Simulated assay, not measured.
Amino acid sequence: MAVRTIRLFGDPVLRAVSAPIDAIDDGIRSLVQDLLDTVELPGRAGVAAPQIGVGLRAFSYNIDGEIGYVLNPVLAEVRGEPVPVGEGCLSVPGLWHDALRHPWARVTGVDLDGNEVVLEGEGLMAQALQHETDHLDGMLYLSRLAPDDRKRAMREVRESAWF
């Protein structure tokens, strides 16, 4: 289908809670293909539907060469105490800060055929699962920064060329 433009910090769709997908139709199949096409670009670990302007609960991922998607994902389980992990976001380009993330995570959802999907892992996979489900809940990783880091990050956003 198409590589879609990433919405940037300040776009209201990034702050809204995404709606569940009630029916899988041609529009949802097209959305999934766009999410997959968009996440395939180098340097991308995940793309949530709100990042391409669609307020529905879906995201794609590209972790260690494995590319996929999940519809109606739920962060079902996390393990371990949250630790600071270097993180960036396509919707906040050029910034990199330590966000608090659990070292292991599991997401459950469905695929286009309505079959259950379970994604789990540690490291980058755990981080991506938490990051992308945050997007679906209207949260950017900046909200997970320590107060002083968040203040510095917001200054960097205001001073950025894209803002």
Rank of each mutant, 00 (worst) to 15 (best):
N62Y: 05
R158E: 15
P20D: 15
G114H: 14
R150S: 09
G55Q: 12
L36M: 08
E81D: 14
N62P: 03
A19Y: 00
L112E: 13
L136P: 08
N115H: 14
V85D: 10
Y69S: 03
D98F: 13
A58W: 01
R106T: 05
A126W: 08
V92K: 04
I6S: 13
A99C: 15
D22C: 00
R155G: 05
V117S: 10
K151Q: 15
V117R: 13
G123F: 07
R7C: 07
P50C: 05
P82F: 03
R155D: 12
P147F: 06
R144V: 04
R4V: 03
I63Y: 06
L145A: 12
D34M: 00
I24D: 06
G46Q: 02
G121E: 13
H97E: 15
G121M: 07
L71P: 15
Q51P: 01
L35D: 09
P12A: 11
H135E: 13
A45L: 12
G68N: 06
Y141K: 11
W96H: 14
L90T: 00
P82K: 01
S60H: 04
Y69G: 09
P73A: 10
A2Q: 11
V17H: 08
A126Q: 03
G109F: 08
V85G: 05
A99G: 15
D137S: 15
E77P: 02
K151N: 09
I24W: 01
R158L: 15
T108M: 09
E87I: 00
L95P: 11
G114R: 10
A16Q: 15
V85S: 11
A19S: 11
V3A: 12
A23H: 13
L119D: 14
V107Q: 12
Y141P: 12
A128P: 02
V13K: 06
P12I: 10
A19R: 11
A99Y: 00
T108G: 00
T38D: 04
P82V: 04
V85A: 13
A48I: 02
F59G: 07
K151F: 13
G123N: 11
L8M: 09
T5K: 15
L140M: 14
E156C: 06
V70Q: 07
D148Y: 05
H102T: 03
R150V: 00
I21F: 10
Y69R: 02
G10M: 04
A128I: 03
A105D: 10
V74G: 08
R7Y: 09
Q130I: 01
V32C: 07
I28H: 04
R4E: 15
R106C: 05
H131I: 06
A146K: 12
T108W: 04
L41C: 03
V83P: 01
S60C: 02
P82A: 08
A19I: 00
G109A: 06
S143H: 10
I21L: 09
S91G: 14
I52T: 01
L90E: 10
I67L: 09
I28A: 06
E40P: 02
G138F: 05
V118L: 11
